[in-house]
């Protein structure tokens, strides 16, 4: 026979405890039902992200109020609660140092905010987009679509690179053109192409210049600033368009090549990788 009125601690009986847990379960069920109702009735009126935030706030409020209403069934003394809580916290801290470490790190992450949901990051060796920041761990979705859960303590102790924290990012290309091509015309055409692209920022202005007179061609450097949100698509698009532009102008992007001079004959040969040796042809 179960003694419902048997005392568990202080004046708290087994029945109080059961009532409390049932109340919490009921509150959680109510919170779930309200969330479903809100989702069904507001999904066509409110943006999805905003609706998710609203639902979370409502759920937390319902659970908080429910627990607050259920607590009086304990008839507890605050002093006792502090003692129980303090002792409990000490035991938990010793028994689960890792969890407490993750919790503390999670708190610092929430305050310091080096990562935000939606940011593209590198945390340690993991690269991807921050999907969720929880109290104990953070969820990253890698660019391959893989779900990675990183304990907050690891994040706190890792090197964090945020690729989108700054509003703009710079990237560059090195484009090599043949020595007989008009580098001035190529630079002017590339500048024109960049000026017409909406996401190649007006300020800071892109820079296009001859960087070096390299072995096989004239190296032109193209430096572009783009909004961090779209920099990758701009980077992939512009390189292809520069290639098409130079092709259209008949400007050759040269292969590596070397001019060989034969000491005995004074004959010159041009050697290209993968091709026949011109010098060998000249030998005949």
């Amino acid at each position: 026979m179960v003694a419902w009125d048997s005392v568990i601690y202080g004046s708290i009986t087994l029945l109080d405890l059961i009532i409390f847990f049932i109340s919490v379960i009921v509150v959680l069920v109510i919170a779930k039902i309200v969330a479903l109702y809100l989702k069904r009735s507001l999904s066509d009126r409110i943006d999805r992200d905003e609706l998710d935030k609203l639902i979370k706030v409502v759920q937390i409020a319902i659970v908080g109020i429910g627990i607050w209403l259920a607590l009086p069934s304990f008839d507890f003394d605050v002093g006792q609660l502090v003692v129980i809580g303090g002792t409990g916290a000490l035991i938990i801290a010793f028994a689960s140092q890792k969890i407490v470490g993750n919790l503390g790190s999670g708190m610092f992450l929430l305050v310091e905010r080096p990562v935000k949901i939606g940011d593209t990051m590198r945390i340690g060796s993991t690269e991807g987009t921050v999907h969720q920041i929880r109290v104990l761990s953070t969820i990253i979705k890698t660019f391959e679509g893989v779900y990675v859960r990183i304990p907050n303590e690891s994040i706190f102790n890792s090197e964090i690179t945020n690729f989108v924290a700054s509003p703009a990012r710079r990237f560059e290309y090195r484009v090599s053109i043949a020595y007989d091509a008009d580098s001035g015309a190529a630079i002017a055409a590339i500048r024109g192409l960049l000026a017409n692209h909406p996401f190649v920022l007006k300020n800071p202005a892109p820079s296009v210049y001859v960087d070096s007179l390299a072995d096989s061609g004239v190296a032109i450097v193209v430096r572009i600033w783009a909004p961090s949100k779209v920099w990758w698509s701009v980077r992939t698009e512009m390189l292809e368009r520069i290639k098409q532009l130079l092709d259209g102008m008949g400007i050759e992007i040269p292969f590596p090549q070397r001019v060989i001079t034969f000491a005995n004959t004074g004959m010159k040969g041009k050697q290209e990788p993968g091709g026949d040796n011109h010098a060998a042809e000249n030998r005949g």
Partner: peptide
Amino acid sequence: TSPKYSLYGTPVEGIITRY
């Protein structure tokens, strides 16, 4: 029109603007 964007302020703390 042809949209163009720019940066007002510094690359670290500025803001992207429709120019």
